[in-house]
Design a protein around this nucleic acid. Structure first.
Lengths: 245, 245
DNA sequence: TATATAGCTGCCATTTTGTGTCACATTTAG
DNA sequence: CTAAATGTGACACAAAATGGCAGCTATATA
């Protein structure tokens, strides 16, 4: 069984880093007490953190101390690829949906994230992005009939959409009739607060639009489909406005 | 003068981490040669990285090796405090607005982000969060009259809201009359796609609701205000539903 | 089944590095 | 000037990392 975190030294450096992040002015003496080491050791630790790129400011003399430089980072967030994709798409959507109140920083986050991605990953996201369309606003009647979808349904749909897999769905149409279909989810269309799927319907052998909140069950099949150009669906959209990264 | 990076051990761990990120299948023997240490040491390093949360997979037997868990590859994102705050609030709002299509990962991002924050920062965000309310849907007439706000106006408003500063605004009311006021922005209310401010109006000496997109100019003053309880504004809200982190 | 490969762990002598103490330099506020 | 603070150098000592080595399990291949 392991102790706390790895080697003790690393753990202390982590702790020091977060202490510098939280409080805004501390003396080395105080920090050394808190971490149960001598001040000499703490100076050495601080130098290590500085070498690793942390912008630690220090004020000498009475009333001085050490702190992280203004506009300090919040720590390093590591994301999985799926998380990065979801985040970028959500940021792009927020861009379109919310007025720019809390969105200033989201631009810079977007660029930071994009900088971290490989060209492969960026191309992948770009492909997805172009398959997500955002509308202006839903009609009142749509609003009235809207129901929140279950997470499992969304999960299968998302997987099928991303991997271009056929999707088996139970769909309840406007007249409450439930039908069973196999569809190819080509494009997603969001019209607050409703998601639509522009799909090729294997049952009707034609392009159809489905409301995600009307899907009762869904299951991603293993069969792949080839993406059809957006133009073939355009007549189904009122306000065509693809989101942009 | 220092040598390479800090302590040698840390530098090697960093290097190992980035090597695992870039290549996708490496044997411990190869890695140990590349880093000029014994295989035994490398196994120990790998354990340290695992303890620190890196999802390192290993395949035993011929053709095996170590690699980062499938679907990894995004590096570490460092955010400023403002970016973290904006991101958390946006995630919380997306949670409420978008149906759960691309939002599964956003939950885990949220938790990762919260884990990085100090208790001070978390408390600060929690305070802000409780002052942002989300409505269900705007009426069609509101939709029709909606105009996108300018970024500078939003910037001043945001600053005043966060720091609890009085705000000087030029406001154009329903009848297109422009008035000049000083308000205290206590609460924000979002009803897609419109932001409202619940404020104490120094001109009328009463609680008033302002539409952000009707603000023509805004300027944050240096005077602070004391937050009034949400209850005093409740009669102004139709659907009271604070967002949750 | 046997063999080679590759991940993984425990033990221990050896080497390296981290640590504390002390001395001393430097800057700053009162 | 004095006190409080950052910062560095040197040295003995303690602690941790390292490298072999022996031995384990799991997997692919002949």
């Amino acid at each position: 069984m392991k102790r706390t975190t790895s080697s003790g030294h690393l753990a202390r450096l982590d702790k020091l880093e977060s202490m510098l992040k939280s409080e805004d002015f501390l003396t080395v003496r105080a920090l050394s007490h808190a971490l149960h080491v001598s001040t000499r050791t703490l100076y050495r630790d601080i130098n290590i953190l500085r070498d690793r790129g942390l912008p630690i400011d220090a004020d000498k003399g009475k009333g001085g101390g050490v702190r992280l430089h203004r506009s300090w980072g919040v720590g390093k967030l590591s994301l999985t690829e799926e998380e990065a994709v979801d985040l970028l798409l959500s940021l792009a959507m927020s861009d379109r949906l919310n007025s720019p109140l809390f969105l200033e920083s989201l631009q810079s986050i977007k660029y930071k994230l994009l900088a971290l991605l490989s060209t492969d990953q960026k191309r992948k996201i770009e492909n997805l992005r172009s398959r997500v369309l955002i509308g202006s606003s839903a009609s009142p009647s749509v609003h009235a009939s809207y129901e929140q979808s279950d997470v499992p349904i969304c999960s299968a749909l998302k997987q099928a959409f991303i991997s271009k897999l056929c999707l088996e769905v139970s769909y309840e149409d406007e007249n409450k009739r439930e039908t069973h279909r196999v569809i190819e989810p080509h494009y997603l269309y969001f019209n607050t607060p409703v998601w639509y799927i522009f799909a090729w319907d294997h049952l009707r052998m034609d392009f159809r639009v489905f409301r995600v909140d009307r899907m009762k069950r869904s299951f991603a099949l293993s069969a792949r489909f080839e993406l059809r150009p957006k133009q073939e669906f355009e007549h189904l959209i009122e306000t065509d406005s693809p989101i942009s990264l």
